[in-house]
């Protein structure tokens, strides 16, 4: 079936299966910044913004996205660049498989709560798992990004 999706501000028609998840539709159509990690909403690497809120695209049926705004990291390029700079500054880069999804979640946190405390940052990002960094450098980078932007 055919649906219209608004991705990063551009509305386009997509051919989908009715039981297809948004993650599959996005990756099939070359939005490869959205990653597959766990298949059941527990790791966070498939995060996209759904009307501005982070959701796991691996469990959102594509058909439910018609008429909603979907944002991938390409849609917040400038913010991703800023965050990448803080990641570089603090040595928070490792495999990076979770980074685009993290940028989206952090961006959403910034819009909701610029002055988030350490615990609020951790709680907001708890669904974005990372197996490489041990979280400390990431946390410092995210804090700086939020702090410098507010």
């Amino acid at each position: 079936m055919k649906i219209n999706l608004n991705i990063n501000g551009v509305s386009k028609a997509f051919l989908i299966q009715e039981n297809e998840y948004l993650l599959e539709v996005l990756r099939r159509n070359d939005y490869t910044s959205v990653k597959r990690g766990c298949d059941n909403t527990s790791c966070g690497v498939c995060t996209v913004l759904f009307d501005g809120k982070p959701i796991p695209s691996c469990s959102m049926l594509a058909i439910r996205c018609e008429g909603h705004e979907i944002t991938t990291v390409e849609g917040i390029e400038k913010e991703a660049e800023k965050l990448a700079n803080y990641f570089g500054e603090l040595g928070a880069d490792q495999c990076g498989y979770c980074n685009p999804s993290m940028a989206l979640t952090v961006y959403s946190l910034k819009k909701e709560n610029k002055h988030a405390t350490d615990e609020e940052i951790k709680a907001y990002l708890v669904g974005n798992l990372c197996r490489c960094t041990g979280y400390v450098a990431q946390h410092q980078a995210i804090k700086k990004y939020l702090g410098d932007e507010s």
Binding site: E74, A84, D93, G96
Partner: peptide, 12 residues
Amino acid sequence: HSVDGLGIMKGR
């Protein structure tokens, strides 16, 4: 900085 951090974050 990591030589590849920026491109990775931007989802290339």
